[in-house]
């Protein structure tokens, strides 16, 4: 099985250490979430995995091959959707297919399929500026999936959304993850979001960024097995994990 592996990765900006010796292993079918306070290097690590930032030490590999540049095997979704406003929603989704020279009919068919998957059927002809924040983020996800990546790298994809939209998008993300068989590496600030989505949570601490704890969690698998999200969140085990995770994030800070 393909793994996305960061091995003892250090990242420096202008000589200042931002991340020191962090190792993360994402298998396909994993949903790994990075959490931590600001400045803990979450986004830096994601950018290393994306091939946008080069580590000063350590290695980043996918399926054993070193990551040297961005590639469609690791599609990135950013907090600000980074959609192309001169294209319709459908054309945005079909972007990766167009880059590969797919024929228009095939592009449309596949794009509509993906729009249906993110529950945006019928919005294909809409312009980006006609869509709400949540809809835009769905287009961004569909666009990333169109590249048929092995891994999705999500940089606070729900960060700019309002609380209600955010909650609905969490289940959409889980549905996509189970339907598309990709490994996910995601960065978030949301503690509950991490618990709902992750199969593994990596807690980072700042100054410079390092791993303080790793949690294996099972709530997202329970959702995938059919349990309703409300029931999962109401489970006392969920609340307990939430407390534990919060403690881990603020560990070492004066109480």
């Amino acid at each position: 099985m393909t793994h996305l592996v960061l091995d003892k990765v250090s990242v420096h900006y202008d000589g200042q250490p931002a991340v020191e010796r962090v190792s993360i292993d994402v298998a396909k079918h994993d949903f790994v979430v990075l959490v931590g306070r600001s400045g803990c290097g979450k986004t830096s690590l994601l950018n290393v995995a994306a091939g946008l930032v080069e580590p000063v030490r350590g290695s980043a590999t996918i399926g054993g091959r070193p990551i040297t540049a961005p590639g469609s095997d690791r599609a990135v979704v950013f907090q600000n959707d980074a959609l192309f406003p001169w294209l319709t929603a459908r054309e945005n989704v079909a972007f990766a297919l167009r880059l590969r020279g797919a024929l228009p009919a095939e592009r449309t068919r596949r794009a509509d399929e993906l729009l249906r998957l993110v529950k945006l059927d019928g919005a294909g002809d809409k312009h980006i500026w006609e869509l709400s924040g949540g809809m835009r983020q769905r287009v961004g996800l569909a666009r990333a999936l169109a590249a048929e990546p092995q891994f999705l790298l999500l940089d606070e994809p729900l960060g700019a959304l309002d609380a209600l939209t955010r909650e609905r998008m969490q289940t959409t993300l889980l549905d996509l993850w189970t339907a598309s068989h990709v490994g996910v590496l995601m960065v978030t600030h949301g503690i509950e979001e991490a618990l709902v989505l992750a199969t593994r949570i990596v807690v980072l601490a700042p100054g410079p960024g390092r791993v303080v704890r790793t949690f294996e969690t099972g709530f997202s698998r329970r959702y995938a097995a059919g349990e309703p999200i409300r029931a999962i969140k109401a489970d006392p085990a969920f609340a307990a994990s939430r407390g534990e995770l919060t403690d881990a994030i603020f560990e070492g800070e004066a109480a």
């Binding site: 994306a50 961005p70 590639g71 599609a75 950013f78 980074a82 972007f95 790298l153």
Partner: peptide, 11 residues
């Protein structure tokens, strides 16, 4: 971000 998104889609 737009450029990075395109590159990560294989451009």
């Amino acid at each position: 971000e737009r450029v990075n998104a395109a590159r990560s889609l294989g451009a």
